[in-house]
Write a protein that binds this DNA or RNA. Structure first.
Lengths: 214, 214
DNA sequence: TAGATTGTTAATCGATTAACAATC
DNA sequence: TAGATTGTTAATCGATTAACAATC
Protein backbone atom coordinates (compact mmCIF):
# COMPACT_ATOMS: atom_id res chain seq x y z
CA UNK A 1 0.00 0.00 0.00
CA UNK A 2 2.66 2.48 1.02
CA UNK A 3 4.72 4.17 -1.68
CA UNK A 4 8.49 3.93 -1.64
CA UNK A 5 10.33 5.93 1.00
CA UNK A 6 9.46 6.95 4.51
CA UNK A 7 6.35 9.03 5.14
CA UNK A 8 7.17 12.24 6.97
CA UNK A 9 6.08 12.83 10.55
CA UNK A 10 4.08 15.86 9.40
CA UNK A 11 1.94 13.73 7.12
CA UNK A 12 1.44 11.03 9.74
CA UNK A 13 0.25 13.58 12.27
CA UNK A 14 -2.41 14.77 9.86
CA UNK A 15 -3.85 11.31 9.23
CA UNK A 16 -6.07 11.16 12.34
CA UNK A 17 -7.50 14.53 11.41
CA UNK A 18 -8.43 13.29 7.94
CA UNK A 19 -9.95 10.27 9.59
CA UNK A 20 -12.05 12.41 11.91
CA UNK A 21 -13.43 14.56 9.12
CA UNK A 22 -14.09 11.64 6.82
CA UNK A 23 -15.86 9.61 9.50
CA UNK A 24 -17.97 12.62 10.23
CA UNK A 25 -18.88 13.16 6.58
CA UNK A 26 -19.63 9.49 6.12
CA UNK A 27 -21.98 9.65 9.09
CA UNK A 28 -23.82 12.63 7.65
CA UNK A 29 -24.24 10.88 4.34
CA UNK A 30 -21.67 12.64 2.15
CA UNK A 31 -20.68 10.19 -0.57
CA UNK A 32 -17.99 11.98 -2.55
CA UNK A 33 -15.62 14.82 -1.83
CA UNK A 34 -13.03 16.71 -3.86
CA UNK A 35 -9.70 17.76 -2.41
CA UNK A 36 -10.84 21.34 -2.91
CA UNK A 37 -14.02 20.93 -0.88
CA UNK A 38 -12.19 18.95 1.81
CA UNK A 39 -9.53 21.64 1.98
CA UNK A 40 -12.21 24.23 2.75
CA UNK A 41 -13.65 22.15 5.56
CA UNK A 42 -10.34 21.25 7.13
CA UNK A 43 -8.44 24.47 6.64
CA UNK A 44 -5.66 22.89 4.57
CA UNK A 45 -4.76 23.38 0.92
CA UNK A 46 -6.14 21.03 -1.72
CA UNK A 47 -2.60 20.48 -2.93
CA UNK A 48 -1.45 19.30 0.45
CA UNK A 49 -4.35 16.92 0.77
CA UNK A 50 -3.60 15.30 -2.57
CA UNK A 51 0.09 15.08 -1.74
CA UNK A 52 -0.69 13.50 1.61
CA UNK A 53 -3.00 10.85 0.20
CA UNK A 54 -0.55 10.03 -2.56
CA UNK A 55 2.05 9.01 0.01
CA UNK A 56 -0.08 5.91 0.41
CA UNK A 57 -1.58 5.38 -3.04
CA UNK A 58 -4.02 6.87 -5.50
CA UNK A 59 -7.35 6.80 -3.70
CA UNK A 60 -9.13 9.28 -5.96
CA UNK A 61 -10.54 9.38 -9.42
CA UNK A 62 -9.89 12.18 -11.90
CA UNK A 63 -12.90 14.34 -12.56
CA UNK A 64 -14.76 12.81 -9.63
CA UNK A 65 -12.80 13.25 -6.43
CA UNK A 66 -12.69 10.79 -3.57
CA UNK A 67 -15.30 8.33 -2.44
CA UNK A 68 -15.76 9.24 1.21
CA UNK A 69 -16.34 5.85 2.78
CA UNK A 70 -13.65 4.15 0.67
CA UNK A 71 -11.12 6.80 1.59
CA UNK A 72 -12.15 6.61 5.23
CA UNK A 73 -11.59 2.86 5.20
CA UNK A 74 -8.19 3.24 3.57
CA UNK A 75 -7.07 5.67 6.24
CA UNK A 76 -8.46 3.42 8.93
CA UNK A 77 -6.26 0.65 7.59
CA UNK A 78 -3.22 2.91 7.25
CA UNK A 79 -3.61 3.86 10.91
CA UNK A 80 -3.99 0.21 11.84
CA UNK A 81 -7.48 0.70 13.25
CA UNK A 82 -8.88 -2.33 11.44
CA UNK A 83 -7.10 -4.56 13.94
CA UNK A 84 -7.68 -5.18 17.64
CA UNK A 85 -5.16 -4.45 20.35
CA UNK A 86 -4.97 -5.40 23.99
CA UNK A 87 -4.02 -2.48 26.18
CA UNK A 88 -2.99 -2.10 29.81
CA UNK A 89 -2.92 1.08 31.85
CA UNK A 90 -0.33 1.57 34.55
CA UNK A 91 -1.30 4.15 37.12
CA UNK A 92 -4.95 4.07 38.18
CA UNK A 93 -5.14 7.72 39.23
CA UNK A 94 -7.29 10.40 37.64
CA UNK A 95 -5.88 10.15 34.16
CA UNK A 96 -5.77 6.36 34.18
CA UNK A 97 -9.38 6.14 35.30
CA UNK A 98 -10.54 8.72 32.79
CA UNK A 99 -8.86 6.75 30.01
CA UNK A 100 -10.32 3.44 31.13
CA UNK A 101 -13.77 5.03 31.18
CA UNK A 102 -13.54 6.36 27.66
CA UNK A 103 -15.58 4.11 25.39
CA UNK A 104 -14.23 5.64 22.18
CA UNK A 105 -11.08 3.52 22.36
CA UNK A 106 -12.96 0.25 22.47
CA UNK A 107 -14.94 1.38 19.44
CA UNK A 108 -11.74 1.59 17.41
CA UNK A 109 -10.40 -1.76 18.58
CA UNK A 110 -8.35 -0.82 21.62
CA UNK A 111 -9.39 -3.13 24.45
CA UNK A 112 -8.26 -2.18 27.90
CA UNK A 113 -7.88 -5.49 29.69
CA UNK A 114 -6.32 -4.38 32.98
CA UNK A 115 -4.97 -1.53 35.04
CA UNK A 116 -2.06 -1.63 37.47
CA UNK A 117 -1.21 0.42 40.50
CA UNK A 118 1.02 0.33 43.58
CA UNK A 119 -1.66 1.69 45.91
CA UNK A 120 -3.14 -1.16 48.03
CA UNK A 121 -6.43 0.72 48.27
CA UNK A 122 -6.91 0.55 44.53
CA UNK A 123 -5.66 -3.00 43.96
CA UNK A 124 -8.60 -5.37 43.66
CA UNK A 125 -11.05 -2.69 42.56
CA UNK A 126 -12.62 -2.47 39.13
CA UNK A 127 -13.32 0.59 36.96
CA UNK A 128 -16.10 -0.05 34.47
CA UNK A 129 -15.21 -3.72 34.49
CA UNK A 130 -11.47 -3.16 34.17
CA UNK A 131 -9.67 -4.77 37.11
CA UNK A 132 -6.84 -3.03 38.94
CA UNK A 133 -3.94 -5.37 39.74
CA UNK A 134 -0.76 -5.02 41.75
CA UNK A 135 1.93 -3.32 39.71
CA UNK A 136 4.29 -6.14 40.72
CA UNK A 137 2.34 -8.57 38.57
CA UNK A 138 2.54 -6.45 35.42
CA UNK A 139 5.52 -8.11 33.67
CA UNK A 140 3.93 -11.52 34.05
CA UNK A 141 0.56 -10.24 32.86
CA UNK A 142 2.03 -8.73 29.70
CA UNK A 143 3.65 -11.99 28.79
CA UNK A 144 0.48 -14.02 29.27
CA UNK A 145 -2.12 -11.78 27.67
CA UNK A 146 -0.77 -10.61 24.32
CA UNK A 147 -0.60 -6.98 25.38
CA UNK A 148 0.40 -4.71 22.51
CA UNK A 149 0.05 -1.24 24.01
CA UNK A 150 1.07 0.05 27.42
CA UNK A 151 -0.34 3.29 28.79
CA UNK A 152 1.62 5.12 31.46
CA UNK A 153 -0.35 7.43 33.72
CA UNK A 154 1.87 7.38 36.77
CA UNK A 155 3.72 10.34 38.30
CA UNK A 156 6.78 11.39 36.33
CA UNK A 157 9.39 9.85 38.58
CA UNK A 158 8.08 6.34 38.01
CA UNK A 159 7.38 6.61 34.30
CA UNK A 160 10.76 5.60 32.90
CA UNK A 161 10.99 2.56 35.19
CA UNK A 162 7.54 1.42 34.13
CA UNK A 163 8.44 1.97 30.50
CA UNK A 164 11.55 -0.15 30.90
CA UNK A 165 9.52 -2.95 32.47
CA UNK A 166 7.00 -2.76 29.65
CA UNK A 167 9.72 -2.97 27.03
CA UNK A 168 11.38 -5.84 28.86
CA UNK A 169 8.02 -7.63 28.86
CA UNK A 170 7.78 -7.27 25.10
CA UNK A 171 5.41 -4.34 24.65
CA UNK A 172 6.10 -2.54 21.37
CA UNK A 173 4.04 0.55 21.89
CA UNK A 174 3.88 3.03 24.77
CA UNK A 175 1.39 5.84 25.27
CA UNK A 176 2.86 8.05 27.95
CA UNK A 177 0.95 10.67 29.94
CA UNK A 178 3.60 11.26 32.60
CA UNK A 179 5.27 14.68 32.34
CA UNK A 180 8.64 13.40 31.13
CA UNK A 181 9.78 12.18 27.73
CA UNK A 182 10.02 8.43 28.09
CA UNK A 183 13.00 6.91 26.26
CA UNK A 184 12.57 3.62 24.42
CA UNK A 185 14.62 1.44 22.04
CA UNK A 186 14.35 2.11 18.31
CA UNK A 187 12.00 -0.78 17.67
CA UNK A 188 9.42 0.46 20.16
CA UNK A 189 6.85 3.13 19.31
CA UNK A 190 6.16 5.87 21.82
CA UNK A 191 3.83 8.84 22.04
CA UNK A 192 4.50 11.29 24.81
CA UNK A 193 1.34 13.25 25.60
CA UNK A 194 2.04 16.29 27.69
CA UNK A 195 -1.21 17.94 28.62
CA UNK A 196 0.39 20.81 30.43
CA UNK A 197 2.57 21.59 27.41
CA UNK A 198 -0.61 22.23 25.53
CA UNK A 199 -1.97 24.46 28.31
CA UNK A 200 1.26 26.47 28.33
CA UNK A 201 1.09 26.94 24.58
CA UNK A 202 -2.44 28.20 25.03
CA UNK A 203 -1.20 30.59 27.69
CA UNK A 204 1.51 31.84 25.34
CA UNK A 205 -0.95 32.40 22.53
CA UNK A 206 -3.44 34.22 24.72
CA UNK A 207 -0.76 36.57 25.99
CA UNK A 208 0.58 37.01 22.48
CA UNK A 209 -2.84 38.06 21.19
CA UNK A 210 -3.16 40.56 24.01
CA UNK A 211 0.27 41.97 23.17
CA UNK A 212 -0.79 42.46 19.55
CA UNK A 213 -3.93 44.32 20.54
CA UNK A 214 -2.16 46.87 22.67
CA UNK B 1 11.34 41.06 25.14
CA UNK B 2 10.28 39.51 21.87
CA UNK B 3 12.38 40.25 18.79
CA UNK B 4 10.80 41.72 15.69
CA UNK B 5 8.53 39.51 13.63
CA UNK B 6 6.26 36.65 14.52
CA UNK B 7 7.67 33.59 16.27
CA UNK B 8 6.93 30.41 14.33
CA UNK B 9 4.51 27.81 15.64
CA UNK B 10 7.33 25.26 15.63
CA UNK B 11 9.37 27.32 18.08
CA UNK B 12 6.37 28.01 20.32
CA UNK B 13 5.59 24.31 20.55
CA UNK B 14 9.10 23.60 21.79
CA UNK B 15 8.96 26.16 24.59
CA UNK B 16 7.12 23.98 27.12
CA UNK B 17 9.67 21.24 26.52
CA UNK B 18 12.53 23.61 27.29
CA UNK B 19 10.65 24.68 30.36
CA UNK B 20 10.24 21.08 31.53
CA UNK B 21 13.92 20.25 31.13
CA UNK B 22 15.10 23.48 32.70
CA UNK B 23 12.80 23.14 35.72
CA UNK B 24 14.07 19.63 36.16
CA UNK B 25 17.71 20.68 35.99
CA UNK B 26 17.09 23.57 38.34
CA UNK B 27 15.52 21.16 40.81
CA UNK B 28 18.51 18.83 40.64
CA UNK B 29 20.88 21.73 41.26
CA UNK B 30 22.36 22.28 37.79
CA UNK B 31 23.42 25.92 37.66
CA UNK B 32 24.70 26.41 34.13
CA UNK B 33 24.19 24.64 30.84
CA UNK B 34 25.58 25.06 27.34
CA UNK B 35 23.42 24.68 24.25
CA UNK B 36 25.54 21.66 23.37
CA UNK B 37 24.90 19.88 26.65
CA UNK B 38 21.21 20.78 26.56
CA UNK B 39 20.97 19.48 23.01
CA UNK B 40 22.28 16.11 24.17
CA UNK B 41 19.72 15.88 26.96
CA UNK B 42 16.79 16.98 24.86
CA UNK B 43 17.60 15.33 21.57
CA UNK B 44 17.72 18.58 19.59
CA UNK B 45 20.66 20.31 17.89
CA UNK B 46 22.61 22.99 19.73
CA UNK B 47 22.06 25.27 16.78
CA UNK B 48 18.32 24.95 17.00
CA UNK B 49 18.33 25.67 20.70
CA UNK B 50 20.32 28.87 20.24
CA UNK B 51 18.09 29.94 17.36
CA UNK B 52 14.99 29.28 19.42
CA UNK B 53 16.17 31.25 22.43
CA UNK B 54 17.25 34.14 20.23
CA UNK B 55 13.71 34.61 18.99
CA UNK B 56 13.10 36.13 22.40
CA UNK B 57 16.41 37.71 23.30
CA UNK B 58 20.00 36.87 24.21
CA UNK B 59 19.73 34.87 27.37
CA UNK B 60 23.20 33.39 27.28
CA UNK B 61 26.74 34.49 27.81
CA UNK B 62 29.58 33.74 25.41
CA UNK B 63 32.07 31.28 26.80
CA UNK B 64 29.76 30.38 29.67
CA UNK B 65 26.44 29.16 28.36
CA UNK B 66 23.09 29.74 30.02
CA UNK B 67 22.28 30.24 33.65
CA UNK B 68 19.67 27.54 34.26
CA UNK B 69 17.37 29.28 36.71
CA UNK B 70 17.52 32.61 34.86
CA UNK B 71 16.69 30.94 31.58
CA UNK B 72 13.93 28.95 33.23
CA UNK B 73 12.41 32.14 34.58
CA UNK B 74 12.61 33.84 31.20
CA UNK B 75 10.77 30.98 29.55
CA UNK B 76 8.21 30.96 32.33
CA UNK B 77 7.54 34.61 31.56
CA UNK B 78 7.43 34.05 27.81
CA UNK B 79 4.80 31.36 28.36
CA UNK B 80 2.88 33.68 30.65
CA UNK B 81 3.22 31.37 33.65
CA UNK B 82 4.23 34.19 35.98
CA UNK B 83 0.61 35.36 36.02
CA UNK B 84 -2.52 33.82 37.50
CA UNK B 85 -5.55 32.79 35.49
CA UNK B 86 -9.07 31.83 36.47
CA UNK B 87 -10.26 28.76 34.64
CA UNK B 88 -13.61 27.04 34.24
CA UNK B 89 -14.26 23.54 33.01
CA UNK B 90 -17.39 22.75 31.05
CA UNK B 91 -18.27 19.08 31.08
CA UNK B 92 -17.82 17.34 34.42
CA UNK B 93 -17.34 13.84 33.00
CA UNK B 94 -14.19 11.72 33.22
CA UNK B 95 -11.89 14.13 31.50
CA UNK B 96 -13.26 17.19 33.27
CA UNK B 97 -12.91 15.53 36.66
CA UNK B 98 -9.41 14.32 35.92
CA UNK B 99 -8.37 17.83 34.94
CA UNK B 100 -9.93 19.39 38.02
CA UNK B 101 -8.09 16.89 40.19
CA UNK B 102 -4.71 17.64 38.69
CA UNK B 103 -2.78 19.83 41.11
CA UNK B 104 -0.04 20.65 38.60
CA UNK B 105 -2.15 23.37 37.00
CA UNK B 106 -2.67 25.26 40.23
CA UNK B 107 1.05 25.14 40.82
CA UNK B 108 1.63 27.12 37.60
CA UNK B 109 -1.07 29.68 38.32
CA UNK B 110 -4.12 28.16 36.67
CA UNK B 111 -6.94 28.24 39.21
CA UNK B 112 -9.98 26.19 38.43
CA UNK B 113 -12.81 28.09 40.05
CA UNK B 114 -15.82 26.15 38.80
CA UNK B 115 -17.10 23.32 36.62
CA UNK B 116 -20.34 23.26 34.64
CA UNK B 117 -22.53 20.42 33.47
CA UNK B 118 -26.03 19.77 32.19
CA UNK B 119 -26.50 16.58 34.23
CA UNK B 120 -28.74 17.29 37.29
CA UNK B 121 -26.99 14.51 39.22
CA UNK B 122 -23.70 16.33 39.01
CA UNK B 123 -24.95 19.86 39.58
CA UNK B 124 -24.39 20.86 43.19
CA UNK B 125 -21.55 18.41 43.76
CA UNK B 126 -17.93 19.37 44.36
CA UNK B 127 -14.74 17.75 43.05
CA UNK B 128 -11.76 18.50 45.26
CA UNK B 129 -13.41 21.71 46.32
CA UNK B 130 -14.40 22.75 42.80
CA UNK B 131 -18.20 23.23 42.61
CA UNK B 132 -20.23 21.94 39.67
CA UNK B 133 -22.85 24.43 38.50
CA UNK B 134 -25.67 24.30 35.99
CA UNK B 135 -24.39 24.89 32.48
CA UNK B 136 -27.15 27.48 32.03
CA UNK B 137 -25.41 29.76 34.50
CA UNK B 138 -22.09 29.73 32.71
CA UNK B 139 -22.34 32.96 30.67
CA UNK B 140 -23.24 34.91 33.78
CA UNK B 141 -20.47 33.28 35.80
CA UNK B 142 -17.82 34.14 33.22
CA UNK B 143 -18.82 37.79 33.26
CA UNK B 144 -18.71 38.03 37.05
CA UNK B 145 -15.55 36.11 37.86
CA UNK B 146 -12.82 37.31 35.52
CA UNK B 147 -12.51 33.96 33.78
CA UNK B 148 -9.65 33.90 31.28
CA UNK B 149 -9.57 30.28 30.16
CA UNK B 150 -12.41 27.94 29.29
CA UNK B 151 -11.88 24.20 29.16
CA UNK B 152 -14.27 22.12 27.08
CA UNK B 153 -14.61 18.46 28.04
CA UNK B 154 -18.09 17.78 26.73
CA UNK B 155 -19.07 15.34 24.00
CA UNK B 156 -18.22 16.53 20.51
CA UNK B 157 -21.69 17.59 19.45
CA UNK B 158 -21.93 20.21 22.20
CA UNK B 159 -18.40 21.56 21.97
CA UNK B 160 -18.89 24.26 19.33
CA UNK B 161 -21.99 25.63 21.05
CA UNK B 162 -20.16 25.84 24.35
CA UNK B 163 -17.21 27.50 22.65
CA UNK B 164 -19.52 30.10 21.11
CA UNK B 165 -21.04 30.84 24.50
CA UNK B 166 -17.60 31.18 26.04
CA UNK B 167 -16.49 33.59 23.34
CA UNK B 168 -19.71 35.58 23.67
CA UNK B 169 -19.03 35.80 27.40
CA UNK B 170 -15.60 37.30 26.74
CA UNK B 171 -13.29 34.34 27.24
CA UNK B 172 -10.11 34.75 25.19
CA UNK B 173 -8.68 31.30 25.49
CA UNK B 174 -10.18 27.85 24.94
CA UNK B 175 -8.67 24.50 25.78
CA UNK B 176 -10.74 21.94 23.94
CA UNK B 177 -10.76 18.20 24.65
CA UNK B 178 -13.84 17.35 22.59
CA UNK B 179 -13.06 15.34 19.45
CA UNK B 180 -13.79 18.14 16.99
CA UNK B 181 -11.79 21.20 15.99
CA UNK B 182 -13.51 24.10 17.69
CA UNK B 183 -13.64 27.26 15.55
CA UNK B 184 -13.08 30.64 17.21
CA UNK B 185 -12.61 34.26 16.08
CA UNK B 186 -9.10 35.48 15.29
CA UNK B 187 -8.65 37.25 18.60
CA UNK B 188 -9.32 34.12 20.65
CA UNK B 189 -6.65 31.51 21.35
CA UNK B 190 -7.57 27.86 21.07
CA UNK B 191 -5.79 24.56 21.63
CA UNK B 192 -7.56 21.49 20.37
CA UNK B 193 -6.30 18.42 22.24
CA UNK B 194 -7.29 15.21 20.54
CA UNK B 195 -6.23 12.30 22.68
CA UNK B 196 -7.39 9.68 20.23
CA UNK B 197 -5.38 11.32 17.44
CA UNK B 198 -2.32 10.60 19.48
CA UNK B 199 -3.37 6.99 20.07
CA UNK B 200 -3.93 6.51 16.33
CA UNK B 201 -0.50 7.91 15.56
CA UNK B 202 0.91 5.44 18.03
CA UNK B 203 -0.99 2.68 16.28
CA UNK B 204 0.39 3.80 12.92
CA UNK B 205 3.95 3.85 14.22
CA UNK B 206 3.67 0.45 15.85
CA UNK B 207 2.39 -1.10 12.65
CA UNK B 208 5.01 0.74 10.64
CA UNK B 209 7.81 -0.66 12.80
CA UNK B 210 6.42 -4.16 12.37
CA UNK B 211 6.29 -3.65 8.61
CA UNK B 212 9.95 -2.64 8.59
CA UNK B 213 11.00 -5.71 10.52
CA UNK B 214 9.39 -8.16 8.16
C1' DT C 1 45.51 35.52 27.31
C1' DA C 2 43.43 31.17 25.51
C1' DG C 3 39.35 28.46 25.48
C1' DA C 4 34.66 28.13 25.32
C1' DT C 5 30.38 29.20 23.73
C1' DT C 6 27.15 32.44 22.32
C1' DG C 7 24.48 35.25 18.73
C1' DT C 8 23.85 35.59 14.01
C1' DT C 9 24.47 35.07 9.12
C1' DA C 10 24.66 31.81 5.34
C1' DA C 11 23.75 27.15 3.39
C1' DT C 12 20.95 23.22 3.28
C1' DC C 13 17.18 20.60 3.63
C1' DG C 14 12.41 19.38 3.67
C1' DA C 15 7.68 20.59 3.49
C1' DT C 16 4.15 23.22 1.32
C1' DT C 17 2.18 25.31 -2.63
C1' DA C 18 1.54 25.97 -7.54
C1' DA C 19 1.03 24.27 -12.04
C1' DC C 20 -0.41 21.19 -15.41
C1' DA C 21 -0.71 16.98 -18.11
C1' DA C 22 -3.37 12.78 -17.59
C1' DT C 23 -7.81 10.94 -17.45
C1' DC C 24 -12.32 9.91 -15.62
C1' DT D 1 -17.13 15.50 -26.00
C1' DA D 2 -16.27 19.13 -22.41
C1' DG D 3 -15.60 19.86 -17.61
C1' DA D 4 -13.78 18.53 -13.46
C1' DT D 5 -10.39 16.91 -10.65
C1' DT D 6 -6.78 13.86 -9.76
C1' DG D 7 -1.70 12.46 -9.53
C1' DT D 8 2.68 14.27 -10.03
C1' DT D 9 6.42 17.31 -11.23
C1' DA D 10 8.42 21.81 -10.48
C1' DA D 11 8.78 26.16 -7.77
C1' DT D 12 8.59 28.36 -3.48
C1' DC D 13 8.83 28.95 1.08
C1' DG D 14 10.21 28.24 5.76
C1' DA D 15 12.63 25.69 9.16
C1' DT D 16 16.78 23.41 10.46
C1' DT D 17 21.64 22.99 10.39
C1' DA D 18 26.30 24.64 9.72
C1' DA D 19 29.73 28.03 10.14
C1' DC D 20 32.08 31.63 12.26
C1' DA D 21 32.98 36.21 14.06
C1' DA D 22 32.07 38.37 18.48
C1' DT D 23 33.03 38.21 23.22
C1' DC D 24 32.84 36.54 27.88
Amino acid sequence: MQRSGRVSEAVIRRLPKYYRYLKDMEKSGVQRISSKELSKRMGLTASQIRQDFNCFGGFGQQGYGYHVSDLCNEIRKILGLHKNYNVIIVGAGNVGQALSNYSGFTREGFNITAMFDANPRLIGMSIRGVPIYDIETMPEYIANNDIRIGVISTPGDQAQTIANQMVAGGIKSIWNFAPIDVKVPEDVAVENVHLSDSLYILSYKMNDLERQES
